[in-house]
Design a protein around this nucleic acid. Structure first.
Length: 271
DNA sequence: CTTCGATCCTGAAGGC
DNA sequence: TGCCTTCAGGATCGAA
């Protein structure tokens, strides 16, 4: 479900609504996510205050007392405050706060992750240690992309979605980024010029920034912490638009599965 | 080593 | 209405 802009939107919502709160109790209802939620998670955070919420790639990092809680949303994970006292299906974990509020981690497909590590050690834990460059960080640029692509021959869309190379880009934004950069998703990275790498690097930043500004993209499940839909879905140019006319040139948008993921592009605007 | 398909899981949507 | 198939914002594993 969530790519970098959605995770960043959730991070901002949690930063506004959770930082400074003290945890009163934790309820683990279902532990078997992608990997089991450690039992000691509750003991580690109860009585502690949430100091900071950070993001690395598509992971959320909650600094709480002596620990850092690490969460990944997989395809369908969400963090919301339970305002209605209704227990929904797939509410796997609840954090009851001292002020009476309840923060819930819900994840129907259970591809998500929730674990805990000692604070300060998160950078070398197995979940975060092999991640690639942050696309909105200072060391992301066209030269970096070209260097990372050397010796490889995968389609550029797969390259952009590989979290060991560059983090945060998923299936929606990969198609949108390449449309904006005017590069076809199937083009192999060995055939991409420096000029095109520059267009791609610029598009990566512009699309992700614009999507964060719009509060992310909601196709079905995704909601921000306060329950709002992402407005960037109205700005999608190609994703989900197979057989519809390109907004720029009216040619029908192509679609094809690539590495098992649906991929969209304009045969005329993109080369 | 790289690349690619299968796989984990649940639910929504569409065809008949 | 129901039953069946397909597909879904991700990441990992193993085969080639």
């Amino acid at each position: 479900m969530p790519e970098l802009p959605e995770v960043e939107t959730i991070r901002q919502g949690l930063a506004e609504n959770l930082v400074g709160s003290q945890i009163h109790a934790v309820k683990l209802r279902r532990r078997d996510l992608r990997v089991p939620i450690p039992r000691q998670l509750a003991r580690a955070v109860v009585g502690q205050q949430v100091d900071k919420i950070r993001r690395r790639a598509k992971y959320l990092l909650f600094d709480i007392g002596e620990h850092t809680l690490i969460s990944h949303l997989g395809m369908t994970g969400s963090w919301t405050f339970n305002e209605s006292n209704v227990r929904r299906k797939h509410d796997h974990v609840s954090f009851h706060l001292m002020d009476g509020r309840e923060l819930v981690f819900n994840d129907p497909r259970r591809f998500g992750l929730l674990t805990i590590v000692p604070r300060g050690s998160e950078g070398n834990c197995s979940w975060l240690s092999h991640l690639g460059v942050e696309p909105l960080g200072v060391d992301f640029d066209a030269e970096k992309l070209r260097a990372l692509s050397s010796g490889r021959s995968i389609p550029v869309k797969n390259f952009l979605m590989d979290q060991k190379i560059v983090v945060g880009i998923g299936n929606i934004y990969a198609s949108e980024i390449l449309y904006r950069a005017r590069v076809r998703p199937l083009r192999r990275v060995e055939r991409i010029s420096m000029k095109d790498w520059r267009a791609i690097a610029t598009s990566v930043r512009e699309i992700l920034r614009a999507a964060i500004g719009g509060g992310g993209t909601t196709l079905r499940d995704y909601r921000s912490v306060n329950g709002q839909s992402g407005r960037f879905k109205n700005r999608l140019q190609v994703y989900g638009r197979a057989k519809l006319p390109c907004y720029a040139c009216s040619t029908v948008i192509q679609s094809r599965a690539l590495a098992g993921r649906s991929t969209y592009w304009c045969q005329v605007c993109q080369k």
